[in-house]
């Protein structure tokens, strides 16, 4: 049996469309029998946020961050034509028409396909995000763990 191919994606962006691209590639790669890792850092962490409010102790800055950042994948804005929140509504309508899979479903599918979802713990601290606020079943790691996966990866992307 040949060794499994590997795909690693760094999701830096917190934009709905960019995250969608990342998750589509990830799900495709998993169908290709790749071992897939998505490493979420900075604004990309918002894709992993639970959509309900979780009560955790936070300082003033952390609270501000928590309020200003989108709570979960479905609340994320677009990288282009966001129109203060109207853009995502439009694009979701168009997606429905074309049967494209919405981002929260893509994330669920990724978990079904055993894609490794990793949250960068260093940036979690910076943005004041706690483990309780993020989805269940994800992993927590730093740059070394990412590099360990990426060094023998055939596909490495930064989105």
């Amino acid at each position: 049996m040949t060794e499994k191919k590997r795909t690693t994606i760094i999701l830096f962006s917190g934009d709905y469309d960019k995250a969608m691209a990342a998750y589509i590639i990830a799900n495709g790669a998993a169908a290709y029998d790749h071992e897939v890792t998505i490493f979420h850092t900075f604004w990309g962490l918002n894709a992993l946020r639970k959509d309900e409010q979780v009560t955790v102790k936070k300082g003033f800055m952390e609270k501000m961050f928590a309020k200003m950042m989108p709570r979960g994948a479905d609340k994320m804005g677009l990288s282009n034509m966001n129109f203060a929140g109207f853009g995502p509504k439009m694009i979701k309508g168009v997606m429905k028409k074309h049967n494209a899979v919405p981002l929260p479903d893509l994330i669920e599918m990724a978990q079904d396909q055993d894609i490794k979802l990793v949250a960068c713990t260093m940036t979690m601290d910076l943005l004041g995000l706690h483990q309780e606020e993020l989805l269940d079943g994800i992993e927590y790691a730093g740059v070394a763990a990412y590099l360990a996966d990426a060094e023998d990866g055939k596909v490495n992307l930064f989105i």
């Binding site: 495709g28 169908a31 029998d33 074309h98 049967n99 899979v101």
Partner: peptide, 13 residues
């Protein structure tokens, strides 16, 4: 039928 990328390939797998 009716499914968009990447669903056909995911389902095929």
């Amino acid at each position: 039928k009716g499914l968009a990328c990447p669903m056909p390939i995911v389902k095929t797998k």
